[in-house]
């Protein structure tokens, strides 16, 4: 499996209140991450692949990996489509 990597050259991020806000440099669009999405984002360390990320989050949330896998895959796919991640 391929490690999930943040495309740090494509965005800048800032923390406001309880959100992380990413601004895509190509068009200035904002992406707001809070709650579970924020936890997934913070767990992306450039080393974990999707499976490892799922295991990590399952431990963090004390939830079955099967219940989390779909959320992780959707999140990674959405942010990869936006150019903010590579997987």
């Amino acid at each position: 499996m391929t490690a999930i990597v943040k495309n740090t050259g494509n965005f800048v991020e800032t923390e406001i209140d309880d959100e992380i806000v990413l601004m895509r440099l190509s068009d200035g669009d904002f992406f707001s991450l809070e709650g579970t999405a924020l936890t997934i984002w913070q767990a992306i360390d450039g080393l974990r692949d999707s499976a490892a990320l799922t295991v990590f989050l399952a431990e963090t949330f004390d939830a079955p990996a099967e219940a989390i896998r779909a959320d992780v895959d959707r999140f990674v796919a959405d942010l990869a489509a936006a150019g903010l991640l590579s997987a």
Binding site: I16, D17, D18, E19, V21, F30, F31, S32, E34
Partner: peptide, 8 residues
């Protein structure tokens, strides 16, 4: 309002 809504 909070977070990204503030930036907007």
């Amino acid at each position: 309002i909070f977070g990204s809504a503030k930036l907007i």
